[in-house]
Amino acid sequence: MSKPKAERGLADNQAEAIARNIRVSPRKLNLVAGSIRNLPASRALADLTFSKRRVAKQVKKALESAIANAENNHQLDVDKLYVKLAEVGRGIVMRRFHARGRGRSATVEKWFSHLKIVVEEREQAEKPMRDARPGFGKSAKSAGEAA
Results as ranks from 00 to 15, higher is better:
54 R>L: 07
28 K>W: 03
32 V>Q: 05
137 G>I: 08
123 E>C: 04
87 E>M: 08
30 N>T: 09
64 E>M: 13
102 R>C: 00
52 K>H: 08
22 I>N: 09
49 T>G: 00
83 V>F: 08
84 K>P: 02
91 G>M: 14
9 G>I: 04
90 R>V: 07
9 G>Y: 00
98 H>S: 13
54 R>D: 06
75 Q>N: 14
36 I>Q: 04
122 R>L: 10
143 A>T: 07
116 K>Q: 11
126 E>D: 14
127 K>G: 03
67 I>E: 02
108 V>M: 14
145 E>C: 00
41 A>E: 01
58 Q>A: 12
22 I>A: 09
16 E>R: 15
53 R>F: 06
63 L>K: 05
54 R>F: 04
72 N>P: 01
97 F>R: 14
46 A>I: 04
98 H>M: 15
31 L>N: 02
138 K>T: 11
25 S>H: 04
116 K>G: 08
7 E>L: 12
73 N>L: 11
135 G>K: 07
107 T>C: 00
134 P>T: 11
63 L>S: 03
18 I>A: 10
109 E>C: 03
47 D>M: 06
35 S>A: 15
104 R>M: 14
33 A>P: 02
34 G>A: 09
82 Y>I: 13
58 Q>G: 01
131 D>F: 12
73 N>A: 12
59 V>C: 03
120 E>F: 03
21 N>Q: 15
31 L>Y: 06
26 P>R: 04
21 N>H: 14
101 G>D: 11
37 R>F: 01
106 A>H: 10
60 K>C: 05
44 A>K: 14
145 E>M: 12
14 Q>T: 05
57 K>D: 11
37 R>N: 06
93 V>G: 01
125 A>M: 02
142 S>F: 02
144 G>N: 10
54 R>P: 00
73 N>G: 01
92 I>Y: 00
141 K>P: 00
102 R>K: 11
33 A>M: 06
7 E>D: 10
130 R>K: 09
136 F>W: 05
70 A>P: 03
60 K>D: 05
125 A>E: 13
123 E>N: 15
20 R>H: 12
131 D>M: 10
63 L>T: 01
2 S>E: 11
55 V>R: 06
74 H>W: 00
65 S>Q: 09
1 M>D: 07
79 D>K: 09
74 H>K: 11
38 N>F: 08
45 L>Q: 13
75 Q>V: 01
57 K>I: 06
22 I>K: 10
123 E>I: 07
73 N>R: 05
20 R>P: 03
23 R>G: 04
135 G>I: 09
108 V>E: 12
23 R>M: 12
129 M>N: 13
19 A>R: 15
5 K>I: 15
71 E>Q: 12
118 V>P: 04
100 R>W: 02
92 I>K: 13
99 A>R: 13
110 K>G: 03
25 S>G: 15
119 V>W: 05
129 M>S: 14
107 T>Y: 12
